[in-house]
Design a protein around this nucleic acid. Structure first.
Length: 435
RNA sequence: GUGAGUGUAGCUCAGCUGGUAGAGCGCUGGAUUGUGGCUCCAGUGGUCGUGGGUUCGAUCCCCAUCACUCACCCCA
């Protein structure tokens, strides 16, 4: 049997419906903040990611799907989308348009990691970027938009973690101080930290080994090394959040794994996600566009990416907790009584669909009992029992499957009756999905 | 890349220190040729992940391998 390859999966109903719902609501919320969609290619030159994400990052050194095209150029399946958006910003000189560039995207990303709960090799991200301004106000509005999106789904138990990671001007001093402080302490730390001290010293701060915690507490804190500009920027972001009543937790040890981040860095974490608890992450990346060819004064940017798979996981947990059920089936199931009403039933279905109802048609000629059983078990909300005499009398029996209540309805007023009844009637007692 | 756990029917799982497999759910039909959910009956289902070894005999014990899951790592 041919199976989906490791780390990839088929999104089937009812779960695929949740992805659709998350995307729909995200689009609505993005529209409120005047974001428009960008669709970038799913593969790019390898160089783009090496230059923007960072040559030494884990993503670039060991997680990318890179391959040779037939002309021998090196291409890579996108591991994230900010690089592509920045590339498009530069390629189309978007800074020359009036106002800020506010773009959102959604789609699959690819990283070759060992699969785990909430971690896949093909995974889905929903993200947005604001380019062309370094104002703290922009950071604030982005975070506010995210809290609104989480609110829309009732994920109010997600927690915002906030930090400033400085800029290329002040970070080297911190790096130096950190390295000095680490040197004498390293022998007492775990093997991972000893390795990280070489590859990515900032990640030492993120270590979870209990024995290392007292040592980490003694290390210099990035906050104390921020230059004036970075410090004021961060302070203003915090003030704006405070005055809007948005809760957050300062996390001086929050570190991002991509090289392009500057100043504001944030993450929303959620308890239902297991060890991959980061629901979404993002931050400012003020120099990125310049690296790719934008003029310095237009190269500021900030953005985030939501892990859609994780978002859905959290949503499922929340809905399960709330005991929510959703109808899985069609609005209407048409049950033909006898083989000779086939085409009349199909015409009726056409009529109801034209009125906006979702209609499933039972196979003409099957026993009515079987058809009703099918209607009920597929979660249809109403069944129409359509035989010769019903058609000739222009009275169609309509059965509400959850209650068993049945009444005849004038054919001409059928779609209006159904639409009205659908909003009033309880959800089917038939098969329901786990949300 | 590293570690641990698990692989038996479409799904969830049972299977006694080793005698070549069961249940529930599902699916199809019937009881019920114009009335579903409940019930009853029948049918449909499996190279017991794969390969090798031990044994008279292996779903069970041993080795290898693959897959899945979780964790490390990393990140969304």
């Amino acid at each position: 049997m041919i199976r989906a390859i490791k780390g990839t999966r088929d999104l089937l109903p009812p779960e695929s419906g949740l992805f659709e719902e998350v995307e729909t609501v995200a689009r609505e919320v993005f529209r409120l903040y005047n974001f428009a969609e960008i669709r970038t290619p799913i593969f790019e030159t390898t160089e783009l990611f090496a230059r923007s994400v960072g040559e030494e990052t884990d993503i670039v050194t060991k997680e990318m799907y890179t391959f040779q095209d037939r002309d021998e150029s090196s291409l890579t399946l996108r591991p994230e989308a900010t690089a592509s958006v920045a590339r498009a910003y530069v390629e189309h000189r978007l800074w020359e348009k009036p106002g800020l560039t506010r773009l959102y995207y959604m789609g699959p990303m690819f990283r070759r990691e060992r699969p785990q709960k909430g971690r896949y090799r093909q995974f889905y991200q929903i993200g947005a970027e604001v380019m062309g301004s370094g104002a703290p106000q922009v950071d604030f509005e982005l975070l506010e938009m995210l809290t609104l999106l989480l609110q829309r789904f009732g994920l109010t138990d997600a927690e915002l973690l906030l930090n400033s990671v400085g800029c290329p001007q002040c970070r080297p001093a911190y790096h130096e101080a950190l390295r000095k402080a680490l040197e004498p302490r390293l022998p007492r730390m775990c093997a991972d930290c000893q390795r990280r001290a070489q590859t990515n010293p900032l990640r030492v701060l993120d270590c979870k080994v209990p024995e290392d915690q007292p040592i980490i507490a003694e290390l210099p804190v990035l906050k104390d090394y921020l230059d004036l500009g970075c410090r004021e920027h961060f302070q203003q972001v915090c003030q704006l959040l405070d005055s809007a009543g948005i809760r957050y937790r300062l996390e001086p040890r929050l570190v991002r794994g991509l090289d392009y981040y500057t100043r504001t860095a944030f993450e929303f974490v959620h308890g239902a996600l297991g060890s991959q608890n980061s629901l979404l992450g993002g931050g400012r990346y003020d120099g990125l566009a310049q690296v790719l060819g934008a003029p310095a004064q237009a190269s500021q940017g900030i953005g985030f990416a939501i892990g859609e798979d994780r978002f859905v996981l959290a949503l499922q947990a929340a809905r399960e907790k709330a005991g929510a059920i959703v109808p899985a089936g069609s609005d209407v199931f048409i049950a033909p009584v006898g083989a000779e009403v086939q085409s009349a039933c199909l015409a009726l279905a056409r009529e109801l669909r034209a009125a906006g109802l979702s209609v499933e048609t039972g196979e003409a000629g099957r026993k009515l009992g079987k058809l009703l059983e099918l209607a009920s078990r597929t979660g249809a909300r109403f069944a129409l029992l359509v035989g010769e005499q019903d058609l000739s009398g222009n009275q169609i029996p309509v059965k509400q499957l959850a209650t068993g209540h049945q009444q005849s309805v004038e054919r001409a007023g059928l779609s209006d009756y159904l639409k009205q009844a659908l909003t009033a009637a309880p959800v089917t007692a038939g098969e329901v999905g786990k949300s």
